[in-house]
Nucleic acid binder design. Structure first.
Length: 818
DNA sequence: TACGGGCGGGG
DNA sequence: GTGTACGCCCGTA
């Protein structure tokens, strides 16, 4: 019989010398099924000697009781780094035999390829199975069972559609734990409550919070159990009964699931929620203190992973906390509950527990909404890269690019080059290349600035100039030298593999943009198309970085160096042509160019842009980015040189775009941040005098001691046990004081402090904010270490010195200021 | 300017 | 799991 299904989770098992892939899937009607399908593991070797090939046919190796065996040897014509020749495809008896046998052959001097490709990845790529999309199998349901879902034994499997299943049953989960003083310790402290928020295929909402403290409440979604053991059992039961396709969380890879597992293990609760009765699987990842949680038969999406690895570049927020991300993406925030109080409330103040239950559910709800909202994007990345969503959301750009290339390699009959090992990796890590060109601006305020930039500069350079490891230093195009890197050239005769697959991404996006435009005109929903366009863009933009990434299979530093060399060439020649045309260039960075119109009209600038575009090769294009009535470029501290990547522009609607000013980052007092932004705004509105007066007023307030102390708070995190500190910065001194007062200080505690007046070192004058009396703060410190550094570079552009702001003559030091 | 160490997310 | 291996930002010699 035939069966159509959408697979979302993949496992494999070896039975009787055969390897079966288990595709946990959703049928069109929404029910779950597991499809098993046989596939054989293999790799390639570079052997031309017939005698060796014959010998290989009987090759075996002892693998701790198992026999690793070569079951088939075939000669196949493949391309490796532009050279086509015969390789040997070696099929073995089980997946783990691949690295074993390959290692043995390598020790005999045989070069092997594709020996470290995950078996599941190999299976889905080779069989054209795109996870989450519709697949058709022929076979029969099995009577073997042993799973929580029906098992279908497939003899053939093929893709029937690139569309994903219409609706996925998603359930978000969030836990709250007992923690005193930010000490998170799953070995010591229990889970207090667990929230679920799910929606099924019929849009029926499922909300639940489970806790093990009885208290007075009317919350209808609350379920109270007797203790933590019962809570864990109930969580397990709910996940098994509800059977979501997708279970989502926020930092659930590193917090919620590992915590649940540790508590379950401690209490002897077997957390066997997998569709094959396997346990919740927490994998420690080497090197970095991180982990990954897996549940067989469910797709676990940790939204933080996707946002941090892939989607975050799209966001303005610099924090990936649930609160910050929800605020930006959902326009909704976490409940304003002080989580630090949970442990106290749990022990002593039960009537307030209701707030925490609501908070708990709300977090699960936010996570659900994030998952729902970003699922389009996740599915698009899944389809383009062609690997399970579980893996895709946990990849960084280099991996996404590499896996995309690996997918395309099958169509082009290309063998993947090996990853670097040992010394080669070290060498690669030591190499570096010249980067982008940045024009040094002359500090000042400019009017009528037009900004142009090259659309997708690096991808279009790579495709236009056929840049890739296969086309480097060809025999036929030696005259085709890279400007500024004359020792390199790339073939202009044959389109090669890497630029070809990149060009397809670029072209698909061009087509897509047309579709999006049409759809918008017809008022149709463009979310899926937008997601696809974003996925294509991000992947295309990552190719340049990939070519210079030390761990890349298609590493090619010459390619990366040539890409930036071309980029410098194009931006510099654009600047030159603009100047020839009578425009003043004020700034340029990588792919953008800032012109001042002066006597010209905007039309003239657009004409200039069109002229530039006429000469550009391939898909390269200079685009109009915007017009800004005013902009300010400041000098590097203590010099008259213009600072790079540090400027502010005002748009037509008076909004301002701030780039590079350091106080947007933390570790500065609120005072410094606010004043800096206000001053930039005033200056860009041509209200320089007002800005001076404004700062003078602030200085007066500061001197009078009337600045609100919370605007002066500095924050630093304690990172180790206090006894371990050898140098005593202000935050360490404060932490010790807090500890003496009975507060618990552990690594992770953030201490807040204010610098007060007096003699001695700054660290001796740090105080706990609640101890600081009105006007007690150190005026000198906040003036010279916070306020002035935040604004002096802006004022120096206007010709005001710090002394001018302080209302003093040039010779006066700060000594007689008080 | 190069390096060494801390940090992220979560309670 | 046919995977060794985070990157960035800050402060200090």
């Amino acid at each position: 019989m035939e069966l159509r299904f959408s697979p979302y989770d993949f496992k494999y098992k070896v039975q009787n010398e055969k390897t079966y892939v288990y595709l946990y899937s959703k049928l069109e009607d929404g029910t779950k099924v597991c499809v098993m399908h046989e596939y054989a593991p293999y790799f390639y070797a570079d052997i031309s000697d017939e005698r060796t090939i014959t010998l290989l046919k009987d090759f075996t190796l002892d693998d701790k009781g198992n026999i690793a065996r070569i079951v088939r040897v075939e000669s196949i014509k493949k391309e490796l780094l532009g050279k086509t020749k015969f390789f040997v495809k070696i099929t073995v008896n089980y997946p783990k035999a691949v690295p074993l046998i390959a290692k043995d052959l390598a020790e005999r001097g045989i070069q092997c390829y594709e020996t470290k490709i995950i078996f599941i990845d190999r299976y889905v790529r080779d069989n054209g199975i795109t996870p989450m999309t519709m697949i058709q199998a022929t076979g029969d349901f099995s009577s073997k069972g042993g799973l929580r879902v029906p098992l279908f034994e497939a003899s053939t499997v093929e893709s029937v559609s690139k569309e994903t299943h219409k609706s996925w049953k998603i359930c978000a989960l969030d836990i709250e734990t007992y923690a005193v003083k930010k000490e998170i310790n799953p070995h010591k402290n229990p889970i207090l409550m667990v929230a679920f928020y799910g929606v099924d295929e019929n849009d029926v909402v499922f909300r639940k919070v489970i806790t093990w403290r009885k208290f007075n409440t009317k919350l209808n979604y609350l379920e109270v159990v007797s203790d933590e053991v019962e809570l864990l059992k109930r969580v397990k039961e709910i996940l098994i009964d509800y059977q979501p396709d997708i279970v989502t969380g926020y930092f659930s890879d590193g917090f919620d699931f590992p915590y649940i597992k540790t508590r379950a293990d401690k209490h002897g609760v077997v957390f066997d929620i997998g569709a094959d009765y396997s346990q919740l699987d927490i994998r420690k990842k080497a090197g970095f203190r991180s982990s990954e949680a897996r549940i067989t038969g469910m797709l676990h999406l940790d939204m933080l992973q996707f946002i941090r690895n892939i989607f975050g570049k799209n966001l303005k927020t610099d924090s990936y906390s649930l609160n910050a991300v929800s605020h930006e993406l959902l326009d909704s925030k976490k409940h304003d509950v002080d989580i630090n109080n949970l442990a106290h409330v749990w022990d002593h103040d039960h009537d307030k527990l209701e707030d925490f239950c609501k908070y708990n559910l709300h977090d699960a709800h936010l996570t659900y909404q994030l998952c729902k909202k970003l699922l389009f994007d996740i599915l698009e990345f899944t389809k383009i890269v062609g690997l399970p969503s579980h893996n895709v959301i946990r990849m960084r750009f280099s991996k996404l690019v590499e896996n995309y290339i690996l997918k395309r390699a099958i169509e082009y009959n290309v063998i993947a080059p090996n990853k670097p090992i040992g010394s080669e990796m070290k060498e690669r890590m030591e190499e570096s290349i010249q980067g982008a060109f940045v024009y040094e601006p002359t500090p000042g305020i400019y009017e009528n600035i037009v900004v142009f930039d090259f659309r997708s500069l690096y991808p279009t350079i790579i495709t236009a100039h056929n840049i890739g490891p296969e086309s480097l230093q060809c025999d036929c195009c030696k005259a085709n030298k890279v400007p500024g890197r004359e020792q390199y050239w790339f073939c202009s005769q044959d389109r090669k593999f890497i630029p070809t697959v990149l060009e397809q991404l670029v072209l698909r996006r061009v087509d897509l943009k047309r579709l999006i435009k049409d759809a918008r005109n017809k008022n149709e929903d463009t979310r899926i198309l937008d997601s696809r366009s974003y996925a294509l863009k991000i992947l295309a933009n990552s190719f340049y970085g990939y070519l210079g990434f030390f761990n890349a299979r298609w590493y090619c530093l010459e390619c990366a160096a040539s890409t930036t060399a071309y980029a410098r060439h194009y931006i510099q020649s654009t600047i030159q042509k603009a100047e020839t045309k009578g425009f003043k260039v004020v700034y340029a960075d990588t792919d953008s160019c800032f012109l001042v119109l002066e006597d010209n009209l905007l039309d003239k600038a657009m004409e200039f842009m069109n002229e530039i575009n006429f000469d550009l090769p391939g898909h390269m294009e200079l685009e109009y980015e915007g017009f800004f009535p005013r902009g300010i470029f400041v000098a590097v501290k203590g010099s008259d040189k213009g600072a790079k990547k540090k400027y502010a522009l005002m748009r037509d609607d008076d909004s301002i775009k701030i780039t590079g000013f350091e106080t947007v980052r933390r570790n500065w007092s609120l005072l410094a941040k606010e004043v800096q932004e206000d001053v930039l705004r005033l200056v860009l509105q041509d209200k320089g005098e007002e800005a001076v007066q404004y700062v003078k007023d602030i200085i007066v307030k500061l001197k009078n001691g009337t600045i609100s102390p919370e605007k002066l708070i500095l924050k630093t995190q304690i990172t180790r046990e206090l006894s371990q500190y050898t140098s005593f910065g202000p935050h360490v001194i404060i932490a010790k004081k807090l500890q003496d007062r009975g507060e618990k200080i552990v690594p992770g505690t953030v201490v807040e402090y204010i610098i007060v007046q007096g003699s001695g070192l700054v660290r001796e004058r740090a105080r706990i904010p609640s101890d600081v009396k009105k006007g007690e703060y150190d005026i000198h410190y906040y003036l010279n270490n916070q306020l002035l550094p935040a604004v002096s570079s802006i004022f120096s552009v206007l010709g005001y010195s710090e002394d001018d702001l302080l209302g003093k003559g040039k010779q006066t030091g700060l000594g007689n200021f008080f």
